[in-house]
């Protein structure tokens, strides 16, 4: 009897927690389909009374969302490629290879997570301005890559340290060179860690606001987040439905991507990519 009661209580707690995590998102989706008049006539928690797709059309057509999506996508994917490439090589070099400065260089990279992003804005702006890179996707890609390294290297070095040397030794005895060793032995074994890095960095880069706002002034090169901000100003309080539609449009691709990769991500994270 007591046990049954306990399990019901447990279920209740778990359901509550899940609801707390999920309900706001569900609410956002329903809100994006509401007509403006529903906001005043009904309580906020009411479901949408119809499917007012107009909000999405308005948000999409008025704000060049397709261009923003393309830009975000290019900048994110290219910088992710470099982040992963550099992360694997650097973290391998500082944990497994033997050289005097190895540990120091590792620390030097990890140091970066302490740096407040806003400090770098004006100096970076001047650097890019001097190199004539302002207002290009390239400057965003470089910035994203550089600022993505610290955290990624921190994550993967932890993983690599717990990685047994024996496998590598066996490969080397079989006559494997250093590059082959990394590509055929280390990378496959780091798959989970790499996926974790990819996903986390994807979210960070996709969600970046401050850099794209500062470095990009051309309307054709802006990213989704700046577009979102633009909606907020453009529609103000008069059109909550359209604002929520634009927010949902930014969120939905993330959710779909997450759904597809979900198993990998959770595996990567739980497999202990983040080892102390």
């Amino acid at each position: 009897m007591k046990k049954g009661l306990k399990s019901i209580a447990i279920k209740f707690v778990i359901i509550c927690l899940v609801v707390i995590e999920i309900y706001p998102l569900f609410w956002m989706l329903t809100a994006s389909l509401k007509q403006q008049s529903e906001w005043t006539s009904k309580p906020a928690y009411a479901l949408n009374s119809g499917f007012y797709i107009q909000n999405y059309i308005q948000a999409w057509t008025r704000g060049n969302m397709n261009i923003f999506f393309k830009n975000s996508f290019i900048c994110t994917v290219v910088s992710l490629f470099f982040i992963v490439l550099f992360t694997v090589t650097v973290s391998f070099a500082v944990t497994k290879m033997r050289w005097k400065l190895g540990e120091f260089v590792g620390k030097y990279f990890e140091f970066g997570i302490m740096i407040p992003v806003a400090t770098a804005l004006i100096p970076l702006f001047q650097i890019y301005s001097g190199m004539g890179l302002l207002n290009s996707r390239l400057c965003l890609i470089i910035t994203y890559t550089a600022f993505g390294l610290s955290l990624s290297i921190l994550l993967t070095t932890g993983y690599l340290r717990s990685f047994p040397d024996e496998i590598m030794e066996a490969a080397v005895i079989d006559g494997c060179g250093i590059y082959k060793l990394v590509w055929y032995v280390v990378v496959p074994l780091m798959k989970n860690a790499i996926v974790t890095v990819l996903v986390l960095q994807f979210f960070f880069k996709w969600n970046d606001l401050i850099f794209s706002m500062t470095f990009i002034s051309d309307q054709k090169l802006k990213t989704v987040q700046t577009g979102l901000l633009y909606f907020q100003n453009e529609f103000g309080a008069k059109n909550w439905g359209a604002i929520f539609a634009s927010v949902s449009m930014c969120v939905i691709p993330m959710l779909i991507l997450y759904m597809i990769l979900n198993k990998r991500i959770i595996e990567g994270m739980t497999a202990g990519a983040v080892k102390g």
Binding site: F86, M97, T119, L124, I127, A146, F147, S150
Partner: peptide
């Protein structure tokens, strides 16, 4: 084993590009 892991060229190839970008974009500011 030791020899492979002490390969200076490989270390340079692995570390230098990232080191340069990181130093200029993150540390220099």
């Amino acid at each position: 084993m030791k020899k492979v892991l002490e390969n200076k060229t490989a270390i340079a190839i692995f570390v230098l590009p990232a080191l340069v970008i990181y130093s200029v974009i993150v540390i220099l500011p």
